[in-house]
Write a protein that binds this DNA or RNA. Structure first.
Lengths: 190, 190
DNA sequence: TATCATCATGAACCATGGTTCATCTTCATG
DNA sequence: CATGAAGATGAACCATGGTTCATGATGATA
């Protein structure tokens, strides 16, 4: 393994075009866009998709992995700021908002994730994102604002249920309604 | 219109079997079960499905309408109890829980609703459910426990985002996290 | 029970969409 | 530039699944 010889120049170019097109088309028309549609959007023939990805699941998975990477980057940045002295609860709140907005943009991509039950769990970025989020949560608890019984699974659950349709106001409102349950202010210990 | 002559006995029987089978199959195997699968589960030939429903969308819609009716019944019962003196906030909480559980059972049915963008909005039961819920909300606000800025749209939004996968504990936990944002206790006015 | 309108049957039809592969093109290396 | 390997092409293949319709069965009515 690892005897990967470098890709040809046009192959590199095409792979990028394909990923872009896939994300675009899936976002625009939902997860069941045809491979033909993606190919056309990428300015490439269908067969080329199959040269780069064994099947549709793999292609969707690649798009998903990209998103997860971005999400991990977000989380790590917030974590770094906290380490540098920023307020943990504020960063957590901001992170939630950022994640929500990204998720909303790629709502359809997320839907695609589910339709392809294929376990995308344990994806590269996921590990990183979770680690950083865990640190962030601990810091916010230490600050005394985040309710001590809140777990990372709570965050994952909530983030998985953000209302992705609707306008941005809907998500802002959702945040308003959900935050109190996470804070010591909204849900006093005993 | 309304010159409906009575259905033949076996037709009535079959229609019931079809609806049951449709709900069962959709719940079990997701919204994209084939018409053939539904037909087989109903012990009937495919053609019979099409005698009772013009197409798949209509069949799914019928299942959905049935669910909505049940939901409306729930809501009206709770509303009636409040009118008879029961605590509004407690009834509201109980209603949310009941709705959640029903929704979880028919998670796949709900998913079906979205996939068929077909506007099932304005369905029969929906009107009834909303009216009753509205009354319930007013009563709970009058009781002073429900936060005064909470609207029926807030409820609809939240109920639309309940975590339907996971075990019942997940939904209980979700309820714990979400309730404070709805109450005056968790989110003081100013 | 005879008659017929209603209903049920299910093989066949057709559209959609994922996937393959024989053929042609293009990059990289000498 | 010549050559071979890597890459791209896209028509064709095939499975799936919604839908139809000619044919046969059955409940209701006289």
């Amino acid at each position: 393994m690892a005897d990967e010889r470098p890709l040809r120049a046009d192959a590199v170019r095409n792979r990028a075009k394909i990923l872009d097109a896939a994300r675009g088309q899936i976002t625009r028309h939902g997860p069941e866009v045809s491979m033909d549609a993606i190919a056309e959007a990428a300015g490439v023939a269908v067969g080329t998709l199959y040269r780069h990805y064994p099947d549709k699941t793999a292609l969707v998975g690649a798009v998903l992995a990209e998103n997860m990477g971005q999400l991990a980057a977000f989380t790590e940045e917030a974590d770094a700021r906290v380490a540098a002295g920023a307020d943990a609860m504020a960063e957590l709140r901001g992170l939630i908002y950022a994640v929500i907005e990204q998720a909303a943009r790629d709502a359809a991509v997320k839907a695609a994730a589910q339709r392809f039950g294929a376990d995308f769990a344990g994806m590269a970025g996921e590990q990183r994102a979770e680690a950083a989020l865990r640190r962030l949560i601990e810091a916010a608890k230490a600050g005394g604002e985040l309710h001590p019984d809140v777990t990372i699974d709570d965050f994952i659950m909530l983030l998985a249920t953000v209302p992705l349709d609707g306008p941005p106001q809907a998500r802002a409102r959702w945040l308003t309604l959900v935050m109190p349950g996470l804070t010591t202010a909204g849900r006093p210990r005993h």
